[in-house]
């Protein structure tokens, strides 16, 4: 009899997801969610996790706003978090009162986009900069002029990731403006700069890991972790931190206001603030994570990677990217449409 019960129990365990205690639906950037960490979460809490990808903040926002999405967790960029909160799309889950919140780096514990962390938990942070194929160009790459006044070798071989806020922040600092400035002379300079630079760009597209590695493009505006992953395929690729100023961003996990699996979502937020799990995120997507103590679980190549460890002499050029006012956003959009024609 005991044997029978044991074998039934074993069969139940083997059946896996069918007997899971629940579900969790994560809506995250593509190529960003480590499968091994998801498996660990599934096994630990006996929850079936489904991950769906998006390619931009706007895609995610539009889809969730439309309703009927069925997602529990979303991972918007910091500058979008205030929009998500203002629209009432996020649940005030109070992650700041969760057990593992003590692990959050003080630098990231009270960000301007979510004061006191009432809604969101750090996922990963990174920088916007330039990736360059050193086989094609050997000069200084710690400058935005790679994009805006490119050397002849790179003309017609540049991709710019179509993330409007990143590009605008980079360009505003390149012409000497302040983040989110509404100074019209600066913004006009930005427009003229970008319109003049665009003929040198071959594409404005996401998914650059493969294209950089395969040589479709020789340089581009990129995120440091993405550049890191391209380098692992093609060692010729290097990442530059523009000395004129480079934006620092953070993507943050949050629970949706209309989530169906709130309890599992809370477990997940707490789970990713555990240093060992945060290290798994970084090991996969190759960005820093904002969780203290995750370093010692990181793979060796992560600790020494030039893409993740900002050179001290360039560190002061980094600035946090911010949510600009609607009037500035309107001008950004106008410039943007002119660029994408």
């Amino acid at each position: 009899m005991k044997q029978l019960i044991a074998s039934i129990a074993a069969a139940c365990l083997l059946a896996g997801p069918a007997f899971a205690e629940g579900n969790l639906n994560i809506y995250n950037w593509g190529n960003y969610t480590p499968p091994d960490m998801i498996r660990k979460f599934e096994e630990k809490y006996n929850v079936k996790v489904t991950v769906t990808d998006y390619d931009s903040n706007d895609t995610a926002l539009a889809k969730v706003e439309a309703g009927g999405h069925g997602f529990d967790i979303v991972v918007p960029a910091g500058i979008y978090v205030p929009i998500w909160i203002e629209k009432g799309l996020l649940l005030e889950a109070r992650p700041d009162q969760m057990e593992n919140f003590k692990n959050v780096d003080p630098k990231w514990a009270n960000p301007t986009f979510d004061p006191g962390r009432h809604y969101t938990v750090p996922w990963q942070w990174g920088t916007v900069g330039v990736s360059v194929n050193r086989k094609v160009y050997k000069g200084d790459i710690n400058t935005s002029s790679i994009l805006f006044n490119p050397p002849d070798e790179l003309k017609g071989k540049i991709n710019v990731v179509p993330e409007m806020n990143d590009l605008m922040a980079l360009a505003v600092h390149y012409v000497g403006g302040e983040t989110c400035t509404n100074d019209m002379t600066v913004l006009k300079k930005v427009r003229d700069l970008l319109v003049a630079a665009k003929p040198n760009w071959v594409s404005m597209d996401y998914g650059t890991v493969e294209q950089l590695a395969q040589g479709d493009i020789a340089a581009g505006m990129n995120w440091n972790g993405s550049s890191f992953r391209s380098r692992l395929i093609n060692p010729q690729l290097e990442f530059g931190f523009p000395q004129e100023g480079f934006p620092i961003f953070m993507d943050n996990a949050a629970i949706l206001a209309d989530a169906a699996n709130v309890d599992n979502a809370r477990l997940f937020l707490n789970f990713i603030m555990d240093p060992e799990n945060a290290a798994m995120i970084s090991a996969y997507a190759r960005y820093g994570n904002g969780i203290v103590g995750s370093d010692k679980y990181m793979p060796e190549d992560m600790k020494t990677a030039p893409e993740v460890n900002i050179p001290p002499e360039l560190a002061k050029a980094g600035f946090p990217i911010e949510t600009c006012s609607p009037e500035v956003m309107k001008i950004y959009t106008r410039i943007w449409t002119d660029l994408q024609k």
């Binding site: 665009k198 594409s203 994408q340």
Partner: peptide, 15 residues
Amino acid sequence: LGGGTQLMLGNLIEL
């Protein structure tokens, strides 16, 4: 295949 710089009407609408 157009890489986001050679838009056609469908892409302009999506934008």
